[in-house]
């Protein structure tokens, strides 16, 4: 009997460790990023690092200002949201409320596929279709630009926006919609004035999720944004926080590499903030 108890206790211990694994991973990631990210910031100076407008890591007198990356990430994400959210929202309303079963099933498959396509494939198609098209249409020397990245990101966040909004819209009690119709509102008026407001926390969660996706995407934007550390402008080549890390990591060393870790730390802080916001909306949706 006694032996049994010891075994049970040991097994409990093993499961406890496994259970805490996710927490451990988050701590590991946080600690690693903080430890490796702080030195460069300390050396460069927080203000110069965050608000410096020039990044010239390989120059004779290197400059490590990441404001261009921060702004590019912020503008890029905002642009993607501005384009992706309305499209995703309207499609979600249509699919959850109006579409017949066949259309709905097809579109659900299509949206899952969109979510499953690897980012490098988006990058590849973007590189060969979108970038030349942007160059032609807007008559600019290089189509690899913030604008192209925004389009690719908008497409990439569509599935999350559509799926999460649909779930929220489908959870709206039918009673609300019946009441609205009985007051003489048309179905369309009902969807946008009753169903959508009733699902607003879920839709907000969808938007925040989209923000997280967009700000964290690296490979696809690397392939279409030109990857030059300019201050952001719609039709110029730009570099995002993510691509700043990715593009120089393989050949960097010393302060330059440390500065890349600091960029990752900044990106991580953005993501943690977004996660907290997401959690807030998801909790609200549950209530």
């Amino acid at each position: 009997m006694k032996k049994n108890k010891t075994i049970e206790r040991a097994i409990h211990g093993v499961f406890l460790i496994l259970g805490l694994l996710t927490v451990g991973c988050v701590l590991l990631i946080t600690i690693y990023l903080v430890i490796s990210g702080i030195p460069a910031i300390a050396e460069i100076g927080l203000f110069d690092f965050l608000f410096g407008t020039e990044w010239a890591s390989t120059a004779a007198e290197p400059k490590y200002g990441i404001l261009p990356f921060i702004l590019t990430s912020v503008y890029g994400t905002a642009g993607a949201i501005l384009i992706g959210v309305p499209i995703g929202f309207f499609a979600a309303v249509y699919l959850s409320k109006m579409a017949n079963q066949k259309v709905k099933a097809f579109m659900e498959g299509a949206v899952s596929l969109l979510a499953g396509i690897p980012s490098v494939v988006y990058g590849l198609v973007g590189m060969l279709v979108l970038v030349p098209a942007v160059r032609e249409i807007f008559d600019i020397p290089d189509g690899a630009s913030l604008f192209s990245a925004i389009i690719v990101l908008a497409i990439m966040i569509l599935p999350s926006i559509i799926k999460v909004s649909m779930t929220a819209l489908e959870a709206v009690p039918k009673e609300y919609e019946d009441a609205s119709l009985a007051l003489g509102a048309t179905p369309v008026e009902t969807y946008f004035r009753v169903s959508a407001p009733a699902a607003k926390s879920g839709i907000a969660a969808a938007v925040v999720l989209g923000v997280g996706r967009a700000i964290g995407e690296a490979m696809a934007v690397m392939m279409v944004s030109g990857n030059v550390p300019n201050m952001p402008s719609l039709f110029q080549s730009v570099r995002f926080l993510t691509t700043a890390v990715a593009s120089e990591m393989s050949y960097s060393s010393g302060l330059q590499q440390q500065a890349l870790f600091s960029i990752a730390l900044v990106l991580f802080l953005f993501i943690m903030l977004i996660n907290a916001t997401l959690n807030f909306f998801l909790k609200k949706e549950k209530d």
Binding site: P173, E175, Y176, D178, A179, S180, L181, A182, L183, G184, A185, E189, R193, V194, P197, A198
Partner: peptide, 30 residues
């Protein structure tokens, strides 16, 4: 228009998840 003239009250109370004022104003606004 018909449903506006012939109103309905349901089995389960189903106010919209909005303020009292907005609930009442919903129909007229529509």
């Amino acid at each position: 228009e018909l449903r506006r003239e012939i109103g309905m009250v349901f089995q389960k109370p189903n106010p919209f998840p909005m303020s009292i004022y907005d609930n009442i104003a919903y129909g007229p606004r529509t």
